[in-house]
């Protein structure tokens, strides 16, 4: 599809069907293994909401990680340019240029970043760019028993993520910041 169009740029995004999330934490451990995330730190997480009174109860689970925003505030505030955004939308950190000032951690509305005490730089979800560039899905997407996450190219009209977001209503978290996040939670 892209070959025919030729000039269109990729725009990676994640569609999440949180109804299917059973909080099994497979994605959290897969990410940890894939990306050498240190103990006590996480590049992704499951937000839990529960409540009610016995026997009328509810519980729901929502995966979250870096939203690889269209207008990432973390890139904006980085003083060395270590935080940058690829043309396909992925927001990454060039570790060699990171001075560890922590400004991006504070600037992120989604608490997606953390300081790695071992490498002494700021880290976060990279959407497993090294896997994506090799044609494989991110680890969290691949490992999920219930297929909660769908990863793909929004610019590709044949992609599953494009199909989902066109045919189903979805929302993003904290749109009021103006960051333009690209994790789309299917309603």
């Amino acid at each position: 599809m892209r070959e025919r169009l030729g000039i269109k740029r990729r725009r990676y995004a994640l569609a999440v069907d949180a109804r299917k999330c059973i909080n099994c934490k497979a994605c959290v451990v897969a990410c940890k293994a894939e990306n050498d995330v240190p103990l006590g730190r996480f590049r992704n997480r499951i937000n839990e909401e529960s409540g009610g009174a016995f026997p009328r109860l509810r519980a729901s689970f929502e995966p979250e990680q870096c939203h690889h925003c269209a207008s990432p505030s973390c890139v904006r505030v980085c003083p060395t340019g270590a935080s940058y955004q690829r043309s396909d939308g992925l927001v990454l950190v060039e570790g060699d240029d990171c001075i560890g000032c922590g400004y991006c951690i504070i600037a992120c509305p989604y608490d997606a970043r953390f300081f790695n005490e071992q490498t002494r730089i700021v880290e976060k979800c990279t959407m497993c760019a090294h896997r994506v560039d090799a044609g494989k899905p991110p680890a969290c997407v691949e490992t999920c028993p219930t297929r909660v996450r769908v990863f793909g190219d929004l610019a590709d009209s044949g992609s599953e993520v494009r199909h989902l977001l066109d045919s189903r209503r979805s929302h993003v978290k904290q749109p009021e910041t103006g960051n333009g996040p690209h994790i789309h939670y299917l309603d």
Binding site: C24, A26, V29, A30, K32, A33, A139, E142, T143, P145
Partner: peptide, 21 residues
């Protein structure tokens, strides 16, 4: 790393938290 093997119709291309760990 341990990745799921998509060829098994039993595990259907998934690997849970324990398998990854």
């Amino acid at each position: 790393k341990l990745n799921p093997n998509p060829l098994s119709p039993k595990s259907r291309g998934m690997l849970c938290a324990r398998g990854n760990a």
